[in-house]
Design a protein around this nucleic acid. Structure first.
Lengths: 345, 345
DNA sequence: CTGTTAGCGCTTTCAG
DNA sequence: CTGAAAGCGCTAACAG
């Protein structure tokens, strides 16, 4: 508790408190020499400005809040990594709130945000969120909000997302370009819209390459590994079986992988598999699996960048903009994660 | 910026500011009725106390800092999840600093911690850290510190870790109990001490079960997949080949897995594999791989719990205690991660 | 039980 | 260029 403060500096230097403050804050109206003296002593005494006093006075805290549904999840932790890296670059602090997909916990966290503890908010909403009330309040307080990944469409502010249609298209196209003609789509998703967008991407790719879509190749998977196993086994057992599998989540790719092995179907020679994924597991199934993934780290960076720009530019109003980042395709046989896992430094 | 404050509440109620404050803070010296009135109006006007004013006054912020070397890493993100969950329960906020294993960034982050922005610090040090200077300063300011996982042994404060010897022992014992007699240890680790402790656990297990250790079964792996592949291939090709593989990191288990497949060795019938791991990938190699892992989530919870206890109990001095959590063995064929991935809620 | 008062440590007019 | 002074919003003695 030796906390040295601005007052002590002033006394020791026979200066007024305000002069010291100016010196420390790089004020313009200041004699370079006195400034030097102040800085020297500050360094010597290891002076640390009290952030709370300054926040109280300035009405800003150099802190942003990040609210995410999960953290022990490769996508969100990469995103947070991205956020944290730009925050650090710009001298901002990052407060983390994990909601565990609970709208109640989310509301609690936003309540804290409302209190003015932070200057801005980055949020990926929980899958149970149904109201924008808290967000509206926060915005009313003049705290800018940027959504990333899980956005509330009807709430007008900056949003950073990926394009599910595009990635569905890209994944399917990839298989087609590898020579696949009979591509089965293993779909599962709590979010109808995502599911449909990806499927539309799939369908559109087929159409673009003049491949007739076939209903029997769209498999509605469930939350039960055994059932999925059977369904996949069935589709791979019919004659004229698929030569490509597009899995909408990684565990379906894994199940497919096991089915193929059991059926003695060679991957990727006889069956090619591509999968959506946010895990680091792709290399494990190498060389058989191609992965399509969200650029999580980049998303974090972009979102944070937009937010901090809004915070530092004066009179900057966050528009209802949307930044759509392309998905990243990680071909089989690639040892390391590409762009998406790229670390700063 | 409609920020309603305590003063306005006081005016509207014809009360003094201090009475309102007392009502809000559940002071003892307060008429239940006035208290009710105050709370009612506060709710109605959606009053949010200004955290900075209160922190400035009280000299505490209800915020803790978490400093970790990485975040896009299953171990640390689970640990943070644990930390965050107890912080939330106790009404604390969590500030995250990611150092990317850089001692410079770590020092920067600790500099901020020093300023009194937080009441306590949870830290897992970077692998390049060589000095305790910043930590000493922080401690001097009366900010309690708890280490988790990556500790500075010579710094006296509470520490939460796992026991590498124990987990080396446990993993080896597991293989032995499964009937393995010739167990090869694939070792790799930048940290000599960890490496040695685990190996000692391995050796001790062999000894305990009267198995003669054999130098040729301790393989020093390197940072090159191909070389490792060859080394593993070699050891699996000698007659009287190992019937058990203990991999000190997951990617060695994966490589072993591929070698076995190439050599047509059945897993787990002919060769059993156990691996250290903090990834979620174990299920992918099911049913062939057994995993031994750190209880990351628990570690986060325990560490946070100790810190927050130190913060809330008055005159509580953090002793140089050490809490050692047992590693968790996740048998093959288990579909989900066990204890370590357990979520709150 | 309530009001008065004196700050927490810093920033920022406004005068010199 | 520097100093005096007035607070930011809240808490905590201390009187009543």
């Amino acid at each position: 508790m030796n906390a040295v403060n601005i007052k002590q500096l002033a006394q020791q230097l026979n200066l007024s408190i305000s002069t010291v403050s100016r010196a420390l804050n790089d004020g313009y109206d200041i004699n370079p020499q006195t400034k030097e003296k102040v800085l020297a002593l500050a360094r010597q005494l290891n002076y640390q400005p009290n952030p709370y006093a300054s926040s109280l006075r300035r009405h800003k805290s150099k802190t942003i809040a990040v609210v995410v549904p999960e953290i022990a999840n490769n996508f969100f932790s990469l995103a947070i990594n991205g956020i944290q890296s730009v925050a650090r670059e710009k001298g901002y602090h990052v407060l983390i709130y994990v909601t565990n997909e609970s709208d109640r916990i989310e509301a609690d966290s936003l309540q804290h945000v409302k209190s003015g503890r932070v200057d801005g908010l980055l949020i990926s909403v929980s899958n149970k969120t149904t109201s924008d009330e808290n967000l509206r309040d926060i915005e009313k307080q003049g705290i800018p909000i940027v959504f990333f990944d899980r956005v509330r469409e009807e709430f007008e502010t900056a949003k950073v997302t990926t394009d599910d249609f595009e990635s569905g298209f890209k994944a399917t196209e990839h298989l087609i370009l590898q020579g696949c003609q009979r591509i089965t789509y293993l779909m599962i998703s709590k979010h109808l819209t995502i599911r449909n967008k990806r499927m539309n991407g799939y369908l559109h790719a087929l159409k673009t390459y003049n491949i007739r879509p076939d209903k029997k190749w769209i498999i509605e998977c469930v939350d039960n590994r055994d059932k999925n196993y059977t369904m996949i086994e069935n589709v791979l057992s019919i004659k004229g079986r698929p030569d490509g599998i597009f899995a909408s989540v990684e565990h379906l790719a894994v199940t497919s992988y096991h089915v193929c092995r059991a059926l003695k179907l060679q991957i990727p020679k006889e069956v090619k598999i591509i999968s959506f994924s946010n895990l680091e597991t792709a290399p494990l199934l190498n060389p058989s699996l191609t992965t399509i993934t969200q650029p999580a780290f980049e998303m974090g960076r972009e979102a944070a960048d937009i937010l901090l720009r809004a915070l530092t530019k004066k009179n900057f109003k966050l528009s209802n903009s949307r930044l759509v980042l392309p998905s990243v395709l990680i071909p089989r046989d690639s040892t390391r994660r590409a762009a998406s896992a790229k670390m700063s430094e």
